[in-house]
Write a protein that binds this DNA or RNA. Structure first.
Lengths: 243, 243
DNA sequence: CGTGACTTAAAAGTCATACTTATTTGATGA
DNA sequence: TCATCAAATAAGTATGACTTTTAAGTCACG
């Protein structure tokens, strides 16, 4: 690391931490397939590439390793692992893949996941939701109705996301609750394709109101059924957009 | 680090890597609540506690941070984050929590997750399974029948786990496929409670055969329905064991 | 008294270097 | 041909010096 000049390293672009900078560069690159499985990265090469110290590279690599994106072995280097072994549930990995060329495939997987989880969550929510959560649900549902016409997609989306977040949280299952971010991502990604093009499907809007009612009434079976219809609609929509 | 003697550090217990040793001690401790949310750990304290260098501690902390178990801030230290922010889908976190006092609650969450995911996966499997996968399914189902009587629970369990793994993999959804390990954990955990006590429920065994048939026949609706029955049974079982 | 600007110190972050250890490769010899 | 050993290589670990952020304390001023 001599050719760096006597002042040590060049200007530090400063972003929360150097290791983060490395991570946010390597992570997306790996998940995007820039370094396909089997590729070997050497730490000293990475040091030079990012102009950071051993410490920083190692920390970034360690995190990638904990996501099962890479494996670090002595005398070998840092090897990119096969796709099937990646921690596809890691929020960060999901984020990276959604930002890369794998986005369509990823959206599909997530929509399928959503359509499996949300109905169950709605059923549980009907049994566990607090009065406050019921009120929130109704409010968001009504706001969805209000913003469902006249090119107000951004406002609609806010309530849509909020609605599903409440459902997941009200299920009382921490794992379901944690999927709130993922669902938000899917919903947002969905509308980004046809921005401001068409108002949301009126039927879907109605279904949200019905779900809110069912949850408030404690009718698990109905809540589950209506939510299922919503997510099935989402799945169908995917097939229409990219058959 | 002076009081360590002239030889440097004491004997090194050697386990794949020092950072792993620290991680495998801190992770379980945090998830078990030994260090409740809000607790502040200082890195130099950890260095002394585990008798390792900064390098090692920092890497371990960095990984814990990527799991959202802790947050590291300058001038403050490493703070344990609130439970709701943990990456509950991280396989390692799941493992740690299953090994700790939170195990019952964790098994419940996972069983609920399972009962949401598996029926959907079975439905997809009916549409996507290869002939080889169908054959595997049938074989495991038959082996389950064969080992379902006469105190052969360990053998039964092997096929049960394998059966569900195939279903998840055959769904063609990478996220479903990745839940194979979790399901295996749940199934194993379930039998550990009543080891060698009773033979598995004959009805459940039959249902597995039905699912295998439905998948082979490409009948998504039936595969989903039968699988749903299996998982509902698992849920009911939980309520009986710990109401 | 408050309140805002300035100082201080604590703890994480980063770097450079020296050293250790595991593992692959391949050369040696039975 | 195969086992064994030696060397080379890249990750792993330790450590000390230094930087940066920021909570908290201090002091002057309104």
């Amino acid at each position: 690391m001599d050719e760096q000049g006597p002042e040590g390293r060049g200007q530090r672009p400063r972003g929360r931490g150097l290791h983060d900078r490395v991570l946010e560069s390597l992570g997306p690159a790996i998940t995007a397939g820039v370094y396909p499985p089997g590729t070997v990265l050497r730490t000293d090469e990475l040091e030079r590439r990012y102009d950071v110290s051993r410490t920083v590279v190692r920390e970034a690599v360690r995190v990638l390793e904990s996501m099962h994106l890479v494996e670090s072995r002595r005398r070998v280097g840092v090897t990119v692992r096969p796709t099937e072994e990646w921690d596809v549930f890691d929020p960060q990995v999901i984020r990276w893949r959604l930002a890369g060329p794998d986005r369509p495939r990823q959206l599909r997987s997530l929509t399928a996941l959503r359509s499996a989880i949300e109905p169950a969550a709605a059923g549980l929510a009907a049994e566990h939701a607090t009065p406050e959560q019921c009120a929130e649900l109704t409010e968001h549902a009504l706001n969805m109705v209000a913003t469902s016409r006249g090119q107000q997609l951004p406002a609609y989306l806010v309530h849509d996301v909020a609605f599903h977040r409440v459902i997941l949280r009200a299920s009382g299952n921490e794992m379901f609750a944690r999927l709130g971010d993922v669902v938000a991502e899917v919903l947002t990604g969905r509308t980004q394709h046809r921005v401001m093009f068409s108002d949301p499907d009126p039927e879907a809007v109605t279904l949200h109101v019905r779900v809110a009612e069912a949850v408030r009434a404690g009718d698990a079976e109905a809540a589950e059924r209506y939510t299922k219809e919503i997510t099935v609609g989402a799945l169908r929509e995917l097939d229409i957009l990219a058959p």
